[in-house]
Design a binder for these strands. Structure first.
Length: 500
RNA sequence: GAUUCCGUAGCUCAGCUGGUAGAGCAUUUGACUUUUAAUCAAAGGGUCGUGGGUUCGAGCCCCGCCGGAAUCACCA
């Protein structure tokens, strides 16, 4: 048994807990009936009201102002804060008990609502009880409102490491971050509602997979003991969802975690949430319209406006999204037409443009670099980039008219990729060739090249109808729609190095 | 992975050219029946991230390590 070290404030709280229990107070009771939230109390209270407005509320004590025989507490519930007024006269038998309450404790209060001299709507504590004793001090910030109405926060809990590691504290004391996560939830539920209303079905597919596929990334490897085989955490949803289209569903989608064993930074977390949807009998043109409609609606639902401020950018989602072909954009921003050019020509172009290229990089890698460095940061207003080079997109269908291209689009907003979609490749012969190309790339040292999935090919041989597929990185979408520039601020529990 | 910066009380931070620690809030005690950063009076609280080194002496200088942040690289 390791010895628990407590600081003075913690020791004091444990002593108080014992004191309360000696007084016959249960510091951890089972339930409490709530009639209203803090915000509802405030909005439903009317000055003129003559009949008493009795409510019962519960929340965490965030501030205590004791004045001898009267005290004002501020409690916080899921909706916000409300002031509680205690007076010895109101509860002569229990007034001493509140002397043992601390900031952080959770209490339930029943009483009439009134407005204090200073105009704050408050609940008179006619009945109250402790609902949970808090045994560790909370880093409580203090808020002050200056003459101009600006809220100044003192002693704010802002150490990013601690905030991420102890998110539950962050959520209690930094009430502004709550709204980001509320919006996140709204965005995801809004997306579900949008798809469900169209009759598409939410499904679940394996996270533990014998083979990983559907994207270019390095996987996490784990081991199944009974079968004694290595398994992979999925890096994408694609190949299983397409199997379900083969199985006869017209529309399937999944919103779930993917795992990629790669770097962590402002836009990457090793586990992240992905939405992929596949709709039979549709192509990427149709999918573009659907995506635009969806994103616009989600933004309106979350923000009640189409205008977004993200980093240094102001983005407007209301006008029709731009469409531009991949090679046209390269030409626009580099002055070079690289469509259907040889590897030597592409290498030369990269050199002229000052784009660093790893030795041995394929033509596609170089093109990708050029696009990433010269084009992406220009794509601020919503832009569908369409018609990608074939080799970059091993699961996308060949363009119906343009040689060497596929029917694929990515949606860029504020310089970041938000969505990726194709007319899905359903010709099993072509798909096999693409996998073989990938295998070659892998032996040439491309660690992220895709693996050949025989069973997936088998499903295509059974036959998949023409299908459009779309993937949206949910975390990035939430970042965009909430104006957060770090993925860690849209994840409750971002991945951190283990402590110690 | 690289570079820069950061780690001091429960929280936010100060700490000069090296002389073994300060403030506000929080906590404790007392006063106070409409306060709201409540106020007033007093008090307690620190292995200065960690391990070495230099020095008579290190929070401060040097090296390693741990953790974090930012930027870059990697990354469909």
């Amino acid at each position: 048994m390791s010895e628990i070290k407590r600081n003075d404030q913690e020791i004091r709280r444990y002593e108080e807990l014992e004191h309360l229990e000696k007084m016959g107070v249960n510091a951890y009771p089972y339930s409490f009936d709530i009639s209203s939230t803090a915000t509802n109390v405030k909005s439903n209270f009317k000055d003129e009201e003559e009949a008493p407005f009795i409510v019962s509320v519960a929340g965490r004590i965030m501030a205590i102002r004791r004045m001898g025989k009267a005290s004002f507490f501020s409690i916080l519930d899921s909706s916000g804060k409300i002031q509680i007024y205690f007076n010895q006269k109101l509860t002569p038998d229990k007034y001493d008990e509140i002397k043992l309450y601390d900031i952080g404790d959770i209490i339930g209060v029943k009483g009439s609502v009134f407005k204090t001299k200073t105009g704050e709507i408050s609940v008179r504590a006619e009945e109250f009880e402790l609902l949970c004793k808090s045994l560790k001090p909370l880093p409580i910030p203090k808020e002050e409102t200056d003459e101009d109405g600006n809220v100044i926060i003192h002693d704010q809990f802002k150490d990013k490491e601690l905030r991420y590691r102890k998110r539950y504290i962050d959520l209690i004391v930094n009430n502004n971050i709550r709204s980001t996560f509320v919006k996140r939830s709204k965005i995801i539920s809004g997306m579900r509602r949008y798809f469900d209303d169209k009759g598409w079905m939410e499904v679940e597919t394996p996270i533990l997979q014998p083979l990983y596929g559907g994207a270019s990334a390095r996987p996490f490897v784990t081991h199944h003991n009974t079968l004694d085989v290595d398994m992979y955490m999925r890096i994408a949803l694609e190949l299983y969802l397409k199997r379900l289209i083969v199985g006869g569903f017209d529309g399937v989608y999944e919103i779930s975690k993917n795992f990629r064993n790669e770097g962590m930074d402002r836009t990457h977390n090793p586990e992240f949430t992905m939405m992929e949807i596949y709709v039979a009998y549709k192509d990427y043109n149709w999918m573009m319209d659907m995506t635009e409609d969806l994103i616009r609606k989600l933004c309106m639902d979350a923000n009640e406006t189409y205008k977004i401020h993200f980093g240094d950018f102001d983005v407007d989602l209301e006008p029709k999204f731009e469409k531009a072909a991949w090679f046209d954009l390269v030409e626009k921003y580099t002055g070079m037409d690289l469509y259907n050019k040889s590897k030597e020509e592409i290498e030369k172009a990269a050199k002229q443009l000052g784009v660093d290229v790893e030795p041995g990089a394929s033509a596609m890698k170089i093109l990708d670099e050029i696009f990433g460095e010269k084009v992406e940061h220009h794509l601020i207003q919503p832009t569908f980039v369409i018609d990608y080079p074939l080799e970059m997109s091993p699961l996308a269908k060949k363009h119906r008219t343009k040689e060497g291209l596929v029917e694929r689009f990515e949606l860029f907003v504020a310089g970041a990729e938000l969505a990726n979609a194709f007319s899905e490749l359903n010709d099993p012969r072509d798909q096999r060739e693409r996998f073989i190309e990938q295998a070659k790339a892998k032996t040439d040292g491309d660690e992220e090249a895709m693996l050949l999935d025989e069973d997936f090919l088998n499903s295509l041989e059974i036959g998949m109808p023409p299908t459009a597929g779309l993937g949206i990185g949910i975390d990035r979408l939430v970042m965009l729609l909430t104006g957060q520039t770090s993925i860690r601020d849209v994840l409750f529990f971002p991945q951190m190095k283990p402590e110690k």
